[in-house]
Nucleic acid binder design. Structure first.
Lengths: 228, 228
DNA sequence: GTGAAAATGTGATATATGTTACATTTTACT
DNA sequence: AGTAAAATGTAACATATATCACATTTTCAC
């Protein structure tokens, strides 16, 4: 059975984009713009949430550092995505950290202002509910993949997922090997070996850090445990 | 660093129990009672949600079947827990399946009735938001554990988690080995071997299917990568 | 209670992936 | 542009865990 890529997409751009123009404007009015340079932390595990973040420009990774010091990356947010609202909404400390992968322009709305928006824009609560219940399904799929799929299939799958997420902006996947390894859940060295194999099989093309998918259909098959 | 058990608990009993008595009554009034015998499916992956479920009596597992035919269990729900609302709320098909682990008495509220409750009980939306954002953190932790922790630590952790969840009703963990393996994310045989080790080390006691934790503190250490 | 079916225990074996160590290349800062 | 620091490639090796095959026990239905 084919694995569907959309089942790994949070659709975090849908919350804001589903609001009416004047409601979106209310959000913009409440926001201030912050800039995070590459490598800077936007929020971090254990920290206390003070608001929500909307990426205007750039990409950021959400991850968690395990006891062994290795990171697990759950998601790469891109321009248009709303993020950092989970811990805020349940009044808990952040369970995860968020780091800018490149220079990011970010709209920040403080907790009081966001609470205000929640009251003023009745639809917003419903959109959050819809989005988080969708995210739950994504997490369920992610856990299944991590726990059961062998590395080769995980890599094939996540290459497709990343490609899809980057598609609107660029055709290649540009990401440090270590980050890619931490998405797929493996060691940097094992990742390298497999990338080489994929390259030799003509599934992808590699140019330094940039990975281009050449045969998505075949990659799909690998991701779905159907390889010759 | 110590792994905290509560970070793996959905707190799915909190939604209903946080409502005022008359609001809870409204829920009860909208519900009908269904009984599922052991092994029966309450809902299943790919199915279309028609309502939500509250367990009155019994336990149920939420799981997903991988392409390889092996199940991954995410959660064991028990009496008092509300479940099955994610797919309903985002208008998607179920991503997971739910099966009764023992005979379950379940309160079912149909989608139209639940929508009604959402309108009538303003607090309910907020409680759902709070709960799902909390669940997100649990999922984040679960993925990290699955991707990074070795089997021994995962088993120690989940024994503690299960013990905590069962605590109010019984002191032992009673679960088929296969289910336990599918929670921890391993093969039945590997699980068996490790249980034997734990038993020999005096960490647990095993009597047929029943597992009793004898040294929770030591198990904690194993779960936290601190074993001698 | 009894027997068939299911679940569990056990041991041998295979293998995927992590680990270690180091050479080489690329990146990014001044 | 030059250089130190970071990232990546490579190979040998170690090992945790899956797999397979089968004996044994337990469970459950009749």
């Amino acid at each position: 059975m084919k694995v569907s890529i959309q089942k790994f997409d949070f659709q975090s751009d849908k919350i804001l984009s589903s609001l009416a123009p004047e409601e979106q404007q209310a959000f913009l009015d409440a926001a201030e713009t912050l800039t995070f340079k590459k490598g800077k932390l936007i929020f971090y595990e254990g920290g206390i949430p003070t608001g929500v973040f909307l990426i205007k420009e750039g990409k950021a990774k959400i991850y968690k550092t395990g006891l062994d010091g290795k990171d697990q990356i759950f998601y790469i947010y891109k321009a248009g995505d709303l993020m950092g609202y989970h811990a805020l909404l349940c009044n808990e400390h952040y369970e995860d950290s968020c780091e800018a992968l490149e220079t990011c322009d970010i709209l920040f709305v403080s907790k009081p202002d966001f609470d205000n928006l929640l009251l003023k824009i009745s639809k917003l609560q419903l959109l959050l509910i819809q989005n988080m219940s969708h995210e739950f399904g994504v997490m369920v799929n992610t856990i299944t993949v991590m726990a059961h799929k062998p590395l080769r299939e995980r890599l094939a799958l996540y290459l497709l997922v990343l490609q899809e997420r980057y598609r609107s902006e660029q055709t290649e996947i540009i990401l440090p090997r270590e980050d890619l390894a931490n998405i797929v859940g493996t060691a940097r060295e094992s990742l390298g070996r497999l990338l080489k194999e994929f390259k030799e099989d003509g599934l992808i093309e590699v140019d330094g850090r940039a990975i281009t998918i050449k045969q998505p259909a075949k990659l799909q098959k690998v991701a779905s445990s159907e390889y010759s």
